[in-house]
Amino acid sequence: MSHGAKMKKKNNALKIFLQPIWSKNPINIQMLGICSALAVTVQLKTALVMALSMTFVVSCSSFMISLFRKQIPKNIRIIVELSVISTFVILTDEFLRAYFYDISKQLSVFVGLIITNCIVMGRAEAFALSNPPHLAFIDGIGNGFGYGSVLLAVAFIRELLGSGKCFGFQVVPDYLYSMGYENAGFMLLAPAAFIIIGLLIWLQKVLTKDGELNR
């Protein structure tokens, strides 16, 4: 392989990794997988665990599906994809239950719902079925990080404004409270998540001058 081709290949992998984090962010641009994104963002801790679980599931299942992409018959591919994805979700859920029981209780059904998360299915259909395993893995990691970054951004805003904390540590100083500052309890409720994510998507659209798209 010539040097140029090698460079191109490396750039390609980097592009596959970076695209889903910003310009093709699964949540903000493609509007996939918001279902679970909102429910776990009351605290940064749960959001981080959810983001890592998601990254693990999407990258491993993309890798696996891409590995078998030539063996999977076309008309039963959906059920094959679902079983691969469910296997990794079960692994994640059992792992969390064994080592992080409290967080697993807080995440409740949302780890299980990774199965029906459109991102995982979407990447399997749109990318893993037509690309080699290592690229599919990178694509999965990129999408997991893209998803995670939005989750963490929403969780950061909600936890900071809603309970004055950051990863469970108090960051709003006591004298502010004694001066009459109060936490915005609204931030901990469901509607706040919708509104924050709406504002974040708006921000990204304005920054990428993408406002006319998806009208």
């Binding site: 509007m31 409720l189 919708f194 709406g198 998507i201 708006w202 659209k205």
Partner: peptide
């Protein structure tokens, strides 16, 4: 930039408040 999804999300948020 507000058309489409961002607006839909914010409207959903307001609806969620009403349902609460």
């Amino acid at each position: 930039g507000m058309e489409g999804y961002p607006l839909a999300m914010i409207v959903t948020g307001l609806m969620a408040m009403a349902f609460m």
